[in-house]
Amino acid sequence: MNNGIADYLPWVGVWAGVGDTQAGQQTAIRTDFVPALDGTGLQMHFEAWDTEFKTLYHGVRAVLAPAPSGVLRALAYSTIHGPLLLELTPDDEGVMALAGESLGRNHISVTFVQDAPAELLFMAFWRPAGGNVPDGDDPRMTCRLKPATPWNSPTV
């Protein structure tokens, strides 16, 4: 079980990868985790582009922070869904599972899973109010993100 901001601090930095959007297009994703609110929160800036970086499919800016009760929530803005308040669902260590409803009553789910030391599996989907609950085959945005490690010339 996690639930503290500290659990996610090892993710601070830039992550990138190529995956698929919920609509099936190939997408290049870059996400940047930054400590926020003097270290009591974590800010995430997420961008999903077409692979030629001409069209921003989806942009999300979010700040994960503790409510006075101690529960973590994420304040967010999505270029598709507008203002969002997402709840952090308790989950295993290395998992950030966020879910909530948009003002338009769309259900949004965003999950990052650290399934290797330098890999985050990103999954997200949204469905309209009253829509079916997706099973494993329903479309979702997925991407394997790696730390954006600077290029090093091969050792001679």
């Binding site: 601090l9 003097d38 270290g39």
Partner: peptide, 14 residues
């Protein structure tokens, strides 16, 4: 002094 209550995890920061 460090401001705020900056929580640090093991092996912090990348």
């Amino acid at each position: 002094r460090r401001v705020g209550s900056f929580p640090r995890a093991e092996g912090v920061a990348e």
